[in-house]
Simulated scan of single mutants.
Amino acid sequence: MSRLTGPNIQLNELGQLHHFLTIEGLKQQHLIEILDTAESFINPNTQEIKKVPILRGKTIMNLFFEPSTRTRTTFEIAEKRLSAQVESLDIETSAAKKGESLLDTLWNLQAMQTDMFVIRHAQSGAAQFFSQHVAPHVHVLNAGDGQHAHPTQAMLDMFTIRKHKGSVFDLKVAIVGDVLHSRVVRSQIQALSILEAREIRVVGPKTLMPESPEAMGIHVYHDMEEGIKDVDVIIMVRLQNERMTSALIPSEKEFFKLYGLTKERLALAKPDAIVMHPGPINRGVEISSEVADGPQSVILEQVTYGIAVRMAVMSIIMSNAAQLKQHRAEQASLDLDEPHTLNAMEEANS
């Protein structure tokens, strides 16, 4: 059985999720399935996240080669809520520190009967690279790779928007801050586009904008007040200092003066606009505490919903694997029956 390759590496032969590496290339039906499934894990009366036995007997390995608080913890909670066996490798004390290659680390962990890897890595494309080297029955989830993608973060953001606005469709959304270096923003823009947001704006200095952003179907603003005027959703993102090779802004103080979200600026958006942030928050740099802790902020809700969304992605992938196995068994049965059918037809015609 060959490994998945090509542009649709994250889809199986039935067009279903096999890995979850990026939003790019997925259809609206894939995203809506994730959102609807996440909704099913939330108790409508208490808003608590349910615990279900869907992944009982499955082993999930978390490989975080980059620091993480929210993503790693919510993945671990989600895995346990699905009743999976959860193992999180401490890279600092692993054999990788002794010179073992990443692939050898991966294959050794796979030999421990791992069913799914959740991988966060500083190198763009790392998740796809790993997905091309695991066994066909093993699944890879991207928990953030370099500046490339962070698909589960984008989906929990879409879920949060849908909870408050009913739908992403026809909304005006402004993403403010370091667009150039943010993998979250790349995935958010792709998801917003697939779910048919009315207008996607990016707001920030020219030095923090990608080349030809208009080609991505987004509207660019370098003036904060104009950029957030009359929008339904404001998503603030932090300065990705660890990915900057040189000073791209005069200072954090100057950045806040020009692009920080304050109560006064928030008043320019629609009265019922929501404020989001994927975290970690840098108060006084991209957002004021008054706004971050204010009534229009849904930042902590994003964290909670992240558990349900990650549960949804993992459960869908495992369900798809079971469906594919059944489909292949049915096809194999038909193939075995085909010679007998042909013989019967030949005898009937003789």
Score class of each variant (00 low, 15 high):
residue 43 N to I: 06
residue 289 S to E: 01
residue 25 G to F: 10
residue 53 P to Y: 12
residue 315 S to P: 02
residue 113 Q to A: 15
residue 163 K to T: 00
residue 117 F to M: 11
residue 291 V to T: 03
residue 321 A to V: 11
residue 129 F to I: 00
residue 135 A to H: 14
residue 132 Q to M: 14
residue 238 R to Y: 08
residue 184 V to R: 09
residue 125 G to H: 10
residue 144 G to N: 00
residue 183 R to T: 02
residue 330 E to Y: 05
residue 217 G to A: 01
residue 116 M to A: 07
residue 241 N to D: 11
residue 163 K to S: 10
residue 281 I to V: 04
residue 59 T to W: 14
residue 301 E to Y: 06
residue 220 V to T: 10
residue 120 R to V: 05
residue 260 G to H: 05
residue 343 N to A: 11
residue 233 V to W: 02
residue 221 Y to A: 08
residue 263 K to M: 06
residue 219 H to L: 06
residue 274 I to K: 05
residue 279 G to N: 03
residue 102 L to M: 13
residue 317 I to E: 08
residue 309 V to D: 03
residue 256 F to A: 09
residue 56 R to M: 13
residue 173 V to I: 14
residue 306 G to A: 07
residue 107 W to C: 11
residue 109 L to G: 05
residue 98 K to G: 02
residue 185 V to F: 09
residue 242 E to G: 01
residue 181 H to Q: 06
residue 231 V to N: 05
residue 159 F to L: 08
residue 305 Y to I: 05
residue 189 I to L: 02
residue 172 K to L: 08
residue 303 V to Y: 09
residue 163 K to H: 10
residue 261 L to N: 01
residue 265 R to N: 13
residue 182 S to R: 03
residue 115 D to I: 07
residue 23 I to P: 08
residue 28 Q to H: 07
residue 199 E to W: 04
residue 334 L to R: 13
residue 166 G to C: 04
residue 268 L to D: 00
residue 179 V to W: 02
residue 37 T to R: 10
residue 61 M to D: 13
residue 137 H to T: 15
residue 321 A to K: 15
residue 219 H to F: 11
residue 78 A to E: 06
residue 75 F to M: 04
residue 107 W to N: 14
residue 308 A to W: 07
residue 319 S to H: 08
residue 20 F to E: 01
residue 9 I to E: 00
residue 323 Q to C: 14
residue 68 S to R: 04
residue 197 A to Y: 09
residue 76 E to G: 06
residue 273 A to S: 07
residue 56 R to P: 01
residue 109 L to I: 06
residue 84 A to G: 03
residue 43 N to S: 13
residue 281 I to W: 01
residue 340 H to W: 12
residue 70 R to Y: 05
residue 253 K to Q: 14
residue 8 N to V: 06
residue 216 M to H: 02
residue 74 T to W: 06
residue 48 E to H: 11
residue 71 T to Q: 10
residue 34 I to Y: 01
residue 69 T to E: 12
residue 337 D to H: 12
residue 339 P to R: 01
residue 279 G to F: 00
residue 31 L to C: 08
residue 10 Q to N: 03
residue 301 E to H: 12
residue 27 K to R: 13
residue 119 I to Q: 02
residue 241 N to W: 14
residue 70 R to A: 13
residue 137 H to R: 09
residue 321 A to L: 15
residue 118 V to S: 01
residue 115 D to F: 05
residue 15 G to V: 02
residue 16 Q to L: 11
residue 144 G to E: 04
residue 224 M to Q: 01
residue 75 F to H: 05
residue 323 Q to D: 12
residue 304 T to K: 15
residue 316 I to C: 07
residue 152 T to V: 01
residue 325 K to Q: 15
residue 190 Q to C: 08
residue 31 L to M: 03
residue 28 Q to I: 09
residue 71 T to M: 05
residue 59 T to P: 08
residue 296 Q to E: 11
residue 214 E to K: 02
residue 94 S to I: 08
